[in-house]
Amino acid sequence: MTSANPSLQALPAEPPALAEISQETLALTRRLFVQLQRRPSTLVAGVLQPLIWLVLFGALFAKAPEGLLPEGMSYGRFLGAGVIVFTAFSGALNAGLPVMFDREFGFLNRLLVAPLRSRSSIVLASVLYITVMSLVQSLAIMATAALLGYGWPGGGGLLLVLVTLLLLVFAVTALSLGLAFALPGHIELIAVIFVANLPLLFASTALAPISFMPAWLGWLAAINPLTFAIEPIRAAYAGQLSLTAVVLEAPYGELSAAACLGVLAALAVGLFLLIRPLLDRKLS
């Protein structure tokens, strides 16, 4: 056989893509977990902070006025859903930090000279790691909330909680990874995380229902992604398991749990599409 292009002849046959991609993704993910195992402070802080929120904020508003919360719900129970979502959210918001450090210290270059089958493996490893870590943190908070007497969602409810958290974590992880490649250094990334974190919490329904807020803040809360995650989870905690039941009474209309999940899914997909060109450029 003859070939016009000698360089094509020199190429050996490629092994199956899936096997290679899983090998490299697994190796990169393992590295992140070894780091976590030897330096568990991130995980511990990620559980401690929301726990303090839960205990202190719960106590602060334990005597919330009658009628503030729907159907005589206790404040602690109301707050639980907010803190669970906040935990997953803050965990995912930090997803970009390890990537940023790899960029800054040149470890990323070490990965890029290797013949990775797909450079998405680098991003995929971060997503896997952050997802597991955020879910572990959230479950720890859920367990603590249950011990404090704030309830536990039943079988189907737990599934709804996990799906909601997953969607939120995907969306926020995409955002954070995008920032990790767009910003010049970790100082800037930490600044953005710091500025985004608390305002997003306050401008959501984590701490108070929309009905309690001034109109403008109500609007903000009603378009805040955290709210779309909090309300289905709150409903699951209340034992209400219909996807079509209204869970959020926003100024612009009523939303069911399914609609909230739809918004979160759209957000996650949208953000991944948005950062893709950036990742392609930085990793090519």
């Binding site: 092994p15 490299e24 190796a27 590295r31 070894v34 089958r117």
Partner: peptide, 16 residues
């Protein structure tokens, strides 16, 4: 935070 051997293993996996 990795040992030298762990780093080499990672590198080996990146080379499949």
């Amino acid at each position: 935070i990795l040992t030298g051997r762990e780093l080499l293993r990672l590198q080996g996996d990146l080379h499949h």
